[in-house]
C-alpha cells in the first residue's frame, strides 16, 4: 500500500517535472544566459549582447531546455564546443582551487588569527588597573569636572 503510494508520488513528480512549465523554463533560460559568455563580444554574457551569435546561442539553449536537458548537461555541451571560456562560472577544478578557496580562507584564517591574538593578549596583559592607576584615574576624573 505504502509502496504503491510512493510509486504513484514518484510518477506524479516525474510527470510534473517533465511537463514543461513555460514560465519556469524561461526563468531557467534567463539564468543560463547570464552564465554564458558571448564568445565574439567583449566580456558580455549572451543575456546582454545584441550580437547575432548571442541570439543563436540563446535560441540553442531554449531548444535544449525544451528538449528536456538539464542545466548541467547544457553547460557541459557548451563547454565541449567552446572550452571553459564560454562559461562565466569557473569550474571547481584543481587549477581553480585558489580562485574559489582563498577568499573564504582569508575570512576563516583571519578570524582564527584574531581569536588567537586576543587569547594571547589576555594571558599576557590584564585590563584591570593597578591600585596606583586607579588613584591616578580618580584624580583625572576629578580634574575633568
Amino acid at each position: 500500500m505504502i509502496r504503491g503510494l510512493l510509486a504513484a508520488l514518484c510518477l506524479l513528480l516525474a510527470a510534473t517535472s517533465a511537463l514543461a512549465d513555460p514560465v519556469k523554463d524561461e526563468a531557467r533560460a534567463e539564468a543560463l544566459f547570464r552564465e554564458v559568455r558571448c564568445i565574439q563580444c567583449q566580456s558580455e554574457s549572451i543575456a546582454d549582447s545584441h550580437a547575432p551569435i548571442a541570439a543563436d546561442m540563446r535560441r540553442q539553449i531554449r531548444e535544449d531546455i525544451a528538449a528536456g536537458k538539464d542545466d548541467n548537461q547544457i553547460r557541459e555541451e557548451l563547454r565541449a564546443r567552446y572550452t571553459d571560456y564560454v562559461l562565466f562560472r569557473p569550474r571547481f577544478a584543481l587549477s581553480n582551487l585558489l580562485l574559489w578557496s582563498l577568499p573564504p580562507l582569508i575570512v576563516l584564517l583571519g578570524a582564527g588569527l584574531l581569536f588567537w591574538l586576543n587569547k594571547r593578549s589576555k594571558i599576557s596583559r590584564s585590563y584591570d588597573l593597578t591600585p596606583e592607576e586607579n588613584e591616578k584615574l580618580r584624580e583625572i576624573m576629578k580634574s575633568d569636572d
Binding site: E35, F88, R89, P103
Partner: peptide, 20 residues
C-alpha cells in the same frame, strides 16, 4: 602560464563575493 582560456563572471562573484 598554462595557455588555457577561461572566464570569471557574475556567477563566481555572486557565490564568493556576495556572501562576504
Amino acid at each position: 602560464v598554462f595557455n588555457k582560456t577561461m572566464s570569471v563572471g557574475e556567477p563566481y562573484y555572486l557565490a564568493v563575493f556576495g556572501p562576504i
